[in-house]
Design a protein around this nucleic acid. Structure first.
Length: 646
RNA sequence: GCCACUGUGGCUUAGAGGUAUAGCGUCGCCUUGGUAAGGCGAAGGUCGGGGGUUCAAUUCCCCCCAGUGGCUCCA
């Protein structure tokens, strides 16, 4: 007999040789929802045999741990279906991921209809209730099993040196090299759906074999799957491309070129509101503003290090009669020249040089997407020139500034990331390990001092220094960088930046902080539209008030309302066409004005307005002058909520 | 850039080897209307572009362009 601790202070006696699954069933019942077991803290299959005293816990399919196992098993199920349908397909790797799993195969192209076929086969395999069994093998035996699959052999090769043997999991004809654990039979996998296919490279290396990746989602329950599907629907409802089109914010014309959005009048209003806010904020933070050209000579970008380190991101050169010119991918080289244009004193530092401008980056065509990834980037950029002692307070005030911005714009869900260089990939960076070490430690100290939470990411630094990135998730769950604060230790040498210090000596220890808290205007607007599902706070709405008349009798009063609002600086549009008011409301909904004012006999008579907000809330008989002063206040406060119908 | 998929009037879309639906929108007329579809009528498409196969192509094949999802990259 063995003694098993089953949790909550209980121990049970069982005959040696009992399986973990039997113990769990005995303790929690048949319908416990357990998919695997934890035996003395190690994840095990349900079929794991217990032959000594131990602790056994059930892993529920709905826990994060359990979902991971379900999804992993689902990836195997997918591989089983694929290899049955396509005997030549070679499975490579197939891990669980957020919401589901994927599996990469070396095989021919797969279309939508094939995807459906594969899913159908997976469902059949589920119905057949196939047992999933663990097998232990030595390396030789494994090599024999996977002799036909060079990818699996390569994985085995990597294990040489720490040859501990390995496990494989078998379900029917299908065997996969795997650590496990897995669910016990295919019938435990019910709530999954294949979602898409894509291409991936073996070992994420574009020089290696191209593979077909099949994505799926998988949950423990029908509810879980449904919820996720609803989430995706909600995300597509918030898609900035769809909303941007409805609101007439921007267009992309193939004759102009991809990745080159045009801001339409409504979008331009939104963009300039953001800019105006940034100008005000930066004035308060002590910035000065400049304008620099969009192109510059090759020698400039050689000096800055862009050509050796960032040439892939730049457009090819333009041959002119006096040399080669490049479109700028960044403003910093030009700002450095602004700095050196005059002799600087310590009294001027920190010198904060800001610019509204556009930079041009040669992004790979396949990565472009709406406003989220473009080739012409409009940004509120700035470079701060300061001494080492001033770095901390400048970085801190920039983090604070970013937080103030996000709070005003209504963003709450973001993470700070410390982006470090990758010493194993020195080509991408300026190779000065000592400087990397020092600046990275410095940023780390600053963040620790602020007590903010952050993660660290190797290989995400700029070529000239480490950075603090602020990461957002798009509605579809993809992570994107919003803002960046970069500490540049290289510019001072490359551009001979210096200042006269307190002792009257020339000092070359000038650090540069590159920062862009509002991302690019393109990406920022995309985030904003997703965040608000297009229902922007009033101060940002391209049309703040839409006036709707009930009949032509009310036209002149509508003009009076318009004038009063315009004098108060409110963006107002009047629809006095002879359509029904239901139809007018429906039409204007798309542009998402904060408020619609319905004007009829009552309003004319009493000099009032009937207010209808975007949510359909209604407030009638509001004095016209009160409305004007209330909306003026709502706009000047940059209020996040629409309060005038309360 | 790489892989896959998609591309039909301003928008959403049906369809199929014989030059094509429907709704919304637009325009006109009627309706003078109180909060998310009032009525009638009209205009609008060389079915992304170019080549090929065919008596015939928007439909099949090839190339290109663009969009979408990924890979890679990144604000």
């Amino acid at each position: 007999m063995i003694t098993i601790d089953v949790g909550e202070g209980e121990t049970h006696e069982y005959a040696s040789g009992i399986t973990a699954g039997e113990v769990i069933q005995n303790v929690h019942g048949k319908k416990s929802g357990a998919v695997a077991a934890e035996v003395d803290g190690t994840e095990r299959d349900m079929s794991h045999i217990l032959d000594s005293d131990c602790k056994v816990r059930a892993i529920n399919g709905q826990s994060e741990q359990g979902l991971y196992i379900l999804r992993h098993s689902c990836a195997h199920l997918l591989a089983q279906a694929v290899t049955e349908l396509y005997p030549n397909a070679k499975p490579t790797i197939g891990p669980p991921i957020d919401h589901g799993f994927y599996y990469d195969f070396h095989m021919g192209p797969i279309g939508e209809s094939e995807l459906k076929e594969i899913e159908k086969r997976m469902k059949e395999l589920v119905k057949r209730n196939i047992t999933i069994e663990r097998e232990e093998h030595g390396n030789d035996s494994l090599r024999e099993m996977f002799a036909q699959n060079p990818f699996k052999l390569e994985i085995l090769d990597d294990k040489i040196g720490h040859d501990v043997g390995s496990s494989a999991y078998r379900q029917g004809e299908f065997v996969d090299l795997c650590r496990g654990p897995h669910v016990s039979t295919t019938s435990q996998l019910r709530w999954f759906k294949l979602t898409s296919t894509s291409q991936a490279y073996w070992r994420a290396n574009s020089d290696r074999e191209s593979l077909v990746r099949i994505y799926g989602m998988c949950y423990a329950t029908k509810e879980g799957l449904k919820t996720r599907q609803r989430q995706l629907e909600e995300a597509s409802r918030r898609d900035h491309k769809k909303i941007g089109k409805e609101m007439d914010l921007y267009m992309i014309d193939e004759l102009i070129g991809k990745g080159l959005p045009v801001w339409l009048p409504n979008g331009e209003v939104l963009k300039s509101e953001i800019e105006r806010f940034a100008v005000e904020t930066e004035e308060a933070y002590g910035y000065v503003r400049v304008t620099t050209p969009v192109l510059g000579k090759k020698e400039l970008f050689e000096t800055s290090g862009h050509l050796p380190h960032y040439s892939d991101g730049m457009y090819p050169p333009m041959e002119m009669d006096d040399g080669e010119y490049y479109l700028k991918a960044m403003n910093c080289p030009m700002h450095h020249l602004v700095y050196t244009n005059s002799k600087r004193s310590y009294r001027e530092l920190p010198l904060r040089i800001a610019e509204y401008g556009t930079v041009y980056r040669n992004e790979l065509s396949g990565t472009l997407s709406g406003l989220l990834r473009v080739r012409m980037l409009s940004m509120n950029d700035a470079h701060i020139y300061c001494t080492l002692d001033q770095v901390a307070s400048e970085v801190e005030s920039n983090i604070r500034m970013a937080q103030e911005y996000y709070s005003t714009f209504g963003f709450e869900d973001y993470d700070l990331r410390l982006s470090l260089w990758d010493p194993d990939n020195k080509d991408k960076y300026i190779d000065q390990p000592g400087n990397w070490q020092a600046t990275q430690d410095h940023l780390r100290q600053i963040m620790d001092g602020l007590g903010v939470e952050y993660t660290e990411a190797v290989g995400e630094a700029a070529f000239y220094g480490p950075k603090i990135d602020i990461q957002f998730r798009t509605a579809l769950g993809r992570e994107e960088s919003m803002a960046t604060i970069q500490l540049d230790f290289a510019a001072k040498e490359r551009f001979e930046l210096s200042y006269m210090d307190e002792t009257g000596n020339e000092n070359g220890e000038v650090f540069v902080i590159h920062r862009a808290p509002l991302s690019t205007h393109e990406r920022f607007v995309a985030f904003l539209l997703e965040q608000w599902a297009g229902n922007l706070p009033t101060w940002l709405s391209p049309v703040q008030v839409q006036v709707i008349t009930i009949s032509e009798k009310h036209k002149s009063y509508a003009q009076k309302v318009r004038e009063k609002l315009e004098i108060a600086g409110v963006r107002v549009s009047v629809d006095d066409s002879d359509n029904t008011i239901g139809k007018k409301i429906r039409t204007h909904r798309k542009v998402r004005p904060s408020y619609m004012l319905i004007l009829g006999d009552d309003e004319v008579q009493n000099e009032t307005v009937s207010i209808r907000d975007r949510g359909g809330s209604q407030k009638n008989g509001v004095d016209l002058n009160d409305f004007v002063s209330d909306i003026f206040a709502e706009i000047s406060n940059r209020s996040k909520v629409l309060s005038l119908t309360e």
